[in-house]
Amino acid sequence: MEVLETTQPAPAAVGAVTAPATSPVRQFITCTLADAEYGIDIMAVREIKGWAETTALPHAPSWIRGVINLRGIIVPIVDLRDRFGQGTTTPTPMHVVVIIQTGARTAGLMVDAVSDIIAISPGDIRPVPEMGVEAPENLLAGLVPLDRGMVALVSLDQLLNFPADVAIAASQLPNA
């Protein structure tokens, strides 16, 4: 009993700093685009593979790099840098594609590199401040301050919400 009483407060104290003890810790894979670091929920990640040539899709927004054959499934590849409005990535064999699955939909995210796996308690996640009208859709789910800098958590549901509407809207634009 004595032992228990002395040891128990310790983790509780840590929990108080990071998060309420009831909240589960979530893991994120972090990947880099230039100097910025982004977090992807590890539960959605299916695999990580090297960059391979894609087949372009007509009338698609520029951030859809096209589709690849993932063991017989046709999977669209999103250029994450372009998706965030930071210009199109020039692919090299060093680039990495993170295959994710949300709901019934599978897609690949093209990033510069995958760097780390971090465990984050929900209490550590800070809301994304309002950025005014200029900001693209709500592609970020939150911000996490770390010692080495900030990690922006990607909202996968928003990100994979392309489709029919985007494709049709794009097809009505004059061809470049």
């Binding site: 040539e53 894609t54 087949t55 899709l57 007509p58 009338h59 698609a60 859809i64 096209g66 589709v67 690849i68 054959n69 017989g72 499934i73 046709i74 999977v75 669209p76 019934a104 939909r105 599978t106 897609a107 392309f162 489709p163 029919a164 985007v166 494709a167 049709i168 097809s171």
Partner: peptide, 25 residues
């Protein structure tokens, strides 16, 4: 193969297939 499963319908495109070299057409 279906494009709609993971992407969406594209006007003028009926679907996709995988060629002998592994590329999508």
């Amino acid at each position: 193969k279906s494009l709609e499963t993971n992407y969406g319908p594209i006007d003028g495109i009926g679907g996709a297939t995988i060629l002998g070299n592994g590329r999508v057409a």
